[in-house]
Design a binder for these strands. Structure first.
Lengths: 150, 150
DNA sequence: TGCAACTTGGTTGTACACAACTCAATAACC
DNA sequence: GGTTATTGAGTTGTGTACAACCAAGTTGCA
């Protein structure tokens, strides 16, 4: 399979355009989420952590970190803020004293319903079709996996 | 044009998967850039600011902010750090005293050559073809534009 | 001319994100 | 059993992001 030759200059430009667009899109999402989540008193990363807990129930900090691709340096203060807001409870595990299990409180469970309209609102805001969203998800997943190899 | 019905649950899941992948991909890029730019002593946002200056020459803070989609709250300290590193010089404009023009220093100009290999390295790290990169750029551009409308 | 509205850049406060480190607990090995 | 290595959270320091606000300069209009 032969491809048209791509000028070097365009190739280099393409790279930083993609990186930049990624950066910009990520922040644009953050901005819209900030608005959508304002009433819930959550930031976007906090919402992601709550999603994990709503979906899979109580689990150790480590497991949350793996799913969100975040380390303890980010998660520890974030979870502390969620605890301060009364949404989660942290309990050191009895079987492995190194591990801390994060539980939802009743308030944390209750918040789930109020968060239900958020995804649909975001979905509409992207202006993409379902096909395009699937493609985007696929491309992003591959990029992340490839970058993680480096 | 009729489409297959998409279950509600998948739709909602798709949204937060896309948002999450975007977030994750953006951070994955940041991580690889951090490595690629370490020798230059630049962070990724600082590199973006330098790109703007390398490409279009000296310009006011406002213009840089528009291109990078960043406000003064982020740019002011960032540019101060670049100035501290001796890469740029900030000069208040004489014709409009509100405006501050950012110039490259000789060291800032020189850094350009040392930064040349970076894009190719990043391009390779993504593991995508040129077609895929173009498509990704296009989708991301549309998403950002749509989100900015909100 | 004089004043209100707007623009530009800066500061402050809060919240990620991550590297580098510490500390305690557990696992692995001889 | 005792020593070493590894693991899980947390802390500290630096650097984005961004909202909210401020000060000074400019513009526009009555």
């Amino acid at each position: 399979m032969t491809t048209l030759p791509v000028p070097d200059s365009e190739l280099l430009r393409l790279d930083h355009q993609v990186c930049f667009q990624l950066h910009a899109a990520s922040r644009a999402f953050g901005s819209v989420y900030r608005d959508a989540l304002k009433d819930l008193g959550l930031t976007y990363p906090q919402y992601l952590a709550m999603l994990v807990l709503w979906e899979h129930g109580a689990q150790p900090v480590k497991a949350i970190g793996e799913q969100l691709r975040l380390d303890s340096g980010t998660l520890s203060p974030l979870l502390k803020r969620l605890e301060g807001a009364g949404l989660v409870r942290r309990e050191r595990s009895t079987e492995d004293e190194r591990s801390v299990t994060v539980h939802l409180t009743a308030a944390g469970e209750d918040l789930r319903e109020r968060a239900l309209p958020v995804p649909r609102r975001m979905l509409a805001a992207t202006g993409l079709t379902v096909e395009e969203l699937r493609m985007l998800r696929g491309l992003l997943g591959r990029v992340t996996a490839a970058l993680d190899e480096v």
